[in-house]
Design a protein around this nucleic acid. Structure first.
Lengths: 121, 121
DNA sequence: CGCATACATCTGTATATCGTGATACACGGG
DNA sequence: CCCGTGTATCACGATATACAGATGTATGCG
């Protein structure tokens, strides 16, 4: 094994790519590209079971792609700024592409309105 | 499920990310960022078993990340230009990052010399 | 408190993926 | 035409990941 490839730090990059190598998680990122959402938003938007949604969010969080904050009953998830340069650029490509999707943006707005006084479903 | 996320075509993007969500395959892409290499090059550079190398290359090929050409006994692999815009940008981030790695470049040159008159190991 | 809602985690099961060794195929040279 | 080398594929066991259902935890409210 040659030295460069041995020392080349591909782990953080691979970690991001592995986390996003799933359609459900990619869709989650697509929605979060427009701003934070709570779990129930994502459940209904992507037609996910509650446990499935939570698990995928846990995977994204473990990979450092998203972070969460609790607001009363709800837990909001958002994309995380990446420290690693290449990782930041790769995720930036996605957020730029998804951010330009107007249909996504309007759905995101609808979802945001669904929480608050009205419960998520 | 909302309309936008249902129709949003994340599959080609996810396919790329899944293919690269593995350290071995990410290292292969890192080496190929400097130009084509044959399987035996990659085996020795990454210390892979023959069958392991072939399988990972097959996965990358199925995902449309690499393509191959046969030259006599050897099969050379190279990165493929991506049609899909976001996919091209994401892969472009990687090739730019890996392309800037000077140690990688020198190892790549060494590998290239190893084939031809001299066998790969 | 007790209860409802939102979320996380556990459990079991099915499927996918990884690595390795054995085998099959392709090509070039004697 | 056989044989060696390089590559692909198959077969196997080990591990990882997927989803759904059940249970556990946290928060807010009457």
């Amino acid at each position: 094994m040659l030295s460069s490839t041995e020392h080349l730090e591909v782990r953080p990059i691979t970690r991001l790519f592995r986390a996003l190598g799933d359609e459900t998680r990619m869709r989650i990122v697509a929605l979060l590209a427009h701003g934070e959402l709570c779990v129930c938003h994502l459940e209904s938007a992507l037609d996910l079971g509650q446990s499935t949604a939570s698990r995928h969010l846990g995977i994204l969080k473990a990979a450092g792609v998203v972070d969460s904050r609790r607001d009363g009953t709800w837990v909001y998830y958002r994309l995380v700024e990446q420290e690693h340069e290449t990782t930041a650029q790769a995720l930036g490509v996605l957020t730029a592409a998804f951010g330009a999707e107007r249909a996504l943006k309007s759905d995101h707005a609808k979802l945001r309105k669904a929480c608050g006084p009205n419960p998520c479903k």
